[in-house]
Computed example of a mutant assay.
Amino acid sequence: MNFLNKILSTDIKKRRWLSVALTILLAGPLTVWGIYGIGEYGIALFILTPLLIGLASTILFGYNRTITYKESRNIAFLTLIVFSLGLMVFAIEGLICIAMAAPIAVLLTWLGSFFGHEIISKTPNSSASMILIVMASIPTMAFIEKEQEPHLSSVVTSIVINASPETVWKNVVEFPELEAPTEFIFKTGIAYPINAKIEGSGVGAVRHCNFTTGSFVEPVTVWDEPRLLKFDVVEQPEPMKEISFWDIDAPHLHDYFVSKQGQFKLTALPNGQTKLEGTTWYYHNIKPALYWRPWSDFIIHQIHERVLSHIKVNSEEK
């Protein structure tokens, strides 16, 4: 690693920023390649990349000098912050997606800094090879993930309405303009429903659920009045509008969250009330699913609750 001796300054301030810059030069092109070239948002991006950021920045900053765990952590987090700002400045990602990925990114960056500290403390001669191994694993994992088929998930939300199924049905099929949302999540750019219109009736009718970013086009597949309305989703708008310095059109806004089907199920209750259940079947091409599915489920629940509450209010009006 003689080349590191030549380029790494002995001045701590200079070395700190040089370590940050060199790490970003390693991670940046791999990130752009993964997103725009391979077209994969997954373990390569959300786990291996922050691991590389923590590992490489720590090794570069601590090469041929004594470094504490605190210094390792600090240089790693500094690099992650600069890297994230770079994603926004160069219109690669927006604030909301970066904020959603932050918990896992912070954890893996810290873990990378820990491994980096252990390497330069115990086996410094293997430092360069470890950086290269992690770098090589990023596109390799992206290519592997790209071949995996997405898993279909469902989200069910229910509400009890003080009205008969016949009354509720009319407000399920189509409903008027919703009031402006008060929930914080919908003020961040996440798309939310505005109203619903339908063309025709019965199986084959086309329902349009209009969101702030466009319309879900939903041909009806089951029309069992007043018990079950089920539909496919053949077109859908972008799931969100990113908060950014620029007008971002990131790949993950297209075909990475896909709604496939939906339904409203109405169940008559003994006291004259109706239990209304809304279900969405979806998949997303963003991994790891264990981390991202709870985010998706939460957002869908919020959308469901907004719609079901609106239907409840309209159905209970005297």
Rank of each mutant, 00 (worst) to 15 (best):
E199A: 11
E242A: 13
I24H: 04
W169Q: 11
W281L: 10
E166Y: 14
Y256G: 04
G34I: 15
R16V: 13
K187T: 13
P29N: 09
S57K: 08
V106S: 03
S84W: 01
K13I: 15
E93L: 14
L269E: 10
N171H: 14
A191E: 04
A205S: 11
G272R: 04
T157F: 03
T58N: 02
I35K: 05
D255Q: 10
Q148T: 09
S84H: 01
T123G: 04
K187H: 13
E317H: 13
G189L: 12
L26R: 00
F83A: 11
L85V: 14
G202A: 10
I185N: 02
T10S: 10
Y36K: 14
F264E: 04
K187D: 09
F175I: 14
T10H: 05
F257W: 01
F3A: 14
G200A: 09
K170P: 00
T188M: 12
I303M: 13
G204I: 13
S9W: 00
T123Y: 08
F245P: 01
F90M: 15
V172K: 02
I194Y: 03
V32E: 02
R227W: 09
L266C: 11
I311C: 08
I120G: 07
I299E: 00
T213L: 11
F115G: 09
G112K: 00
K287Q: 11
V106Q: 02
V134F: 03
V220L: 10
V134R: 01
V172T: 07
G94M: 09
P181D: 12
G116H: 03
F245C: 06
D232L: 13
Q236W: 05
E316Y: 10
L85Y: 04
S215M: 06
T157W: 01
L18P: 00
I144V: 15
T279F: 02
I38G: 05
S9E: 02
F83G: 07
L132N: 00
L25T: 07
L308G: 02
V156R: 07
E235M: 08
E238V: 07
A268I: 07
V217R: 05
G272I: 13
